[in-house]
Every structure is written in C-alpha cells, then in structure tokens.
C-alpha cells in the first residue's frame, strides 16, 4: 500500500511541476466544447438537448488524448524496463500510475465540467449527475486507456493508433455516463447508471492491470 502511495505521490508531483500534463486536457475540453455552439448554432433549447452527449464525448476524447503520455516518459528514460526487471509485483504499481494519471486528468475534467455545462445550457438538474458520472466514468476511461497506452508506448506513431484501439472499448462508459446526465435532466433518478458505472469501474480495476502489465512487457521486450 505504501508503494502505491509513493508512486502516486511521485507521479502527481512530477505532473504538477510540468504543468502541461494536467492543463492541456482541460484546455482541450474547454476549446472543443466551445466549438459546438459555433457548429450547430446558439439556440439554447437545441444546445440543452445535445449538452449531455457533447460534454461526455468531449471529456472522453480529452481523457483519451491525455492517456497517450501515461507510460511515455518512463519508457523513454528506461525506468519502466527497470521496474519490469526488478520482479516486484506489477499489479499495484500499474494501478498506482494509472490512478495518479486520473487524478491529474480525469478528476480536473470532472470538476470543471459543470462550468462547461453552464456554457452549453445544460439544465441545472443535470449538473450533479454530470460531475458524478464523469468522476466515476473517467477512472474507467483512464484504466482502459492505459491498456492501449501500454500496447503502443514502444511505437513511434502511437497517438492515432491508440484511439483506434481504445475507442470501441469506451462505448459502455459513454452510454451509461451520458444516460445518467440525460436521466437527471428529465428529472428521474440516475442512481442505476451510476451503479452500473461503478460496476464497470470495479471490473476494470480488477482485470485491466493484468492486461496493462502484459502489454508493458511486450512493449519493453520488442
């Protein structure tokens, strides 16, 4: 457990110092959300209908683009190779790195999302659902995205390939997340959707680190 904390602390401090790692996804989120009214028109009613879907899709893209850099620096300075060679259990380390990454990308995205909800005319009744569904959902996105990042970390042209691999796997999260917001806007209870997202989260945390570990070994060995 102390190992997990140590890795998380180190990664988060490094990311804070660099700055761009946590600020770029946020800027992307804001900019792309601002493009939608320009693309479909400023009609508040229309925007309100589309807002849950737009916010979720853009947050998903921002989270995915940020995932690309998850293992990049560790791979480049060969510290990843050392971790793999050391034989220490991979599961907690991989999980710690992924969760640290979420704290610096997914968490800020969810915290900022109500602000963008206001810009896109999302009714106030949907704000909590948006924040909560993103907070749970982006963890799943980070964990699944980490599989793709681990598979492509050794390749030159990682970025676009990562999205081809990972986007189909994101679909259940998108469905339940945006549905939570829509249901909240309609005034119904959105706890079922949050519960489903939570189930996805537990499943992903239990299984994905195994795949991430295997993928990292493949990327380092080649």
């Amino acid at each position: 457990m102390s190992l997990v904390w140590a890795i998380m602390r180190r990664d988060m401090l490094a990311s804070l110092r660099r700055g761009s790692e946590w600020s770029n996804p946020l800027i992307f989120f804001v900019m792309v959300c601002a493009l939608f009214p320009l693309g479909i028109g400023p009609d508040p009613k229309q925007l309100a209908v589309l807002a849950p879907g737009i916010l979720w899709v853009v947050a998903l893209l921002a989270s995915m683009l940020a995932t690309d850099s998850l293992f990049r620096s560790d791979f480049d300075d060969a510290s990843l190779e050392q971790v793999l060679l050391s034989g220490s259990p991979l599961f907690p380390q991989v999980l710690a790195k992924t969760l640290a990454h979420w704290c610096m990308t997914g968490l800020p995205l969810s915290l900022v999302s109500p602000l963008l909800g206001v810009l896109l005319q999302l009714p106030t009744s949907g704000m909590w659902a948006l924040l909560l569904s993103l907070a749970i959902g982006t963890v799943v996105l980070s964990v699944i995205g980490a599989i793709g990042a681990a598979l492509t970390v050794g390749l030159r042209k990682g970025g676009l390939l990562l999205s081809l691999i990972v986007l189909p796997l994101y679909i259940p999260v998108l469905i339940f997340g945006s549905s939570a917001v829509q249901t909240a806007v309609e005034g119904a209870s959105y706890t079922p959707q949050l519960a489903l997202l939570g189930a996805l989260l537990l499943g992903a945390i239990a299984l994905a680190p195994l795949a991430i570990g295997a993928a990292l070994r493949i990327s380092v060995d080649q």
Binding site: I147, L151, G154, I165, A211, A214, A215, I218, S219, Q222
Partner: peptide, 9 residues
Amino acid sequence: AAAKACAVL
C-alpha cells in the same frame, strides 16, 4: 511483438 500485442488486445 505484433502477435503478442494483438493477442492482448
């Protein structure tokens, strides 16, 4: 490496 990566995916 391609075979193993595709297997994982």
